[in-house]
């Protein structure tokens, strides 16, 4: 089980001949992910790690009918790659690429809503359902199969927390990076809903950071629905000054909107246990 991807997911890698695409295609294959094809305009007919490469997603789809795509295409062309995937029937699109213009991301999400496609990212480490399928760039050895779902806006911070869980014998159902940009496909609420229905998930970890109000909205959702599974959270950026972008395009406090205090307060009021340090997450989960 787990959400969005599983051992039956058939994926293509867009931008498979680039350094990152090539490197991570190999790691995903080794993890057992069914990478059925890759695309790279102008490189059709070649192979990467035994994976057939096509010029277009259309052709890859004619021959392999994939249902997911992972995009490593450079930022100026990444939105086009996402449209190409969606217009050719791909229903799960994972955009690893960082630095995609906001306008491009907004256009992609508008089309995804029309087509009912699930977009993860941009600027995401991807998604992993441990021991079944990995569509992402995360180091796989720090994850293990289990019952805790993770939703995060950060990459390495997710690894930090996942490694801590695994070290404490707590496995994960699915770990998903929403992406560090202001405009992303899935948000916390969408993913909480999926974990609610997933029978293999017994608790959820929400890893947020400064910027925007999506954590506050998630807190309202948790309180309103009396969310049936325990939720534990960590919010990064308590020490961040206002008006400064902290690495991620989306991590910025504007005036009074987007502070860590506001998010922590909203989550606490919704009954979510908020960890003070990343290392406390495992303790909070075991202590419940």
């Amino acid at each position: 089980m787990g959400i969005i991807i599983d051992k039956n997911t058939r994926a293509i890698v867009q931008g498979i001949t680039g350094t990152q695409g090539n490197f991570h295609a190999k790691l995903m294959l080794e993890y057992g992910t069914k990478i059925v094809a890759g695309t790279s305009p102008g490189k059709g007919g070649t192979q990467v790690h035994g994976i057939p490469v096509y010029d277009t997603v259309e052709e890859a789809q004619e021959k392999h009918s994939a249902n997911a795509s992972i995009i490593f295409v450079p930022a100026p062309f990444a939105a086009d790659a996402a449209f190409e995937a969606m217009e050719n029937g791909i229903t799960t699109v994972i955009i690893i690429t960082e630095h995609i213009p906001i306008k491009d991301a907004i256009n992609v999400m508008a089309r995804a809503r029309q087509l009912g496609a699930t977009v993860i990212g941009p600027n995401t480490p991807g998604i992993i359902t441990p021991e079944q399928c990995k569509l992402g760039i995360m180091p796989s050895h720090i994850f293990k199969s289990g019952t805790v779902g993770m939703i995060s806006r950060s990459g390495t911070l997710t690894y930090e927390i996942a490694a801590g869980l695994t070290r404490n014998g707590i496995g994960q159902s699915t770990c998903l990076g929403l992406g560090g940009d202001p405009i992303t496909g899935l948000n916390f609420i969408d993913t909480l809903k999926m974990f609610e229905k997933d029978t293999s998930t017994q608790a959820v970890i929400l890893i947020g950071e400064i910027g925007g109000n999506l954590e506050e909205l998630a807190a309202q959702y948790i309180a309103r629905q009396t969310y049936p599974k325990p939720v534990v959270a960590f919010i990064a950026g308590r020490s961040a000054p206002p008006g400064k972008r902290m690495g991620h395009a989306g991590a910025i406090v504007m005036g009074k909107v987007g502070t860590a205090e506001s998010k922590i307060q909203a989550l606490t009021e919704a009954g979510v246990k908020v960890a003070e340090k990343p290392g406390d997450i495992a303790k909070l989960l075991m202590g419940r």
Partner: peptide, 28 residues
């Protein structure tokens, strides 16, 4: 990505979330 702050511990890390959490942990 670099942002100047007003303390005395210089921080270098990888990943925005991890670096933010590092600053928070120093402050903690």
């Amino acid at each position: 990505a670099y942002v100047k702050l007003d303390g005395d511990i210089g921080v270098v890390g990888n990943g925005a979330g991890l670096v933010m959490a590092t600053l928070d942990t120093i402050q903690y």
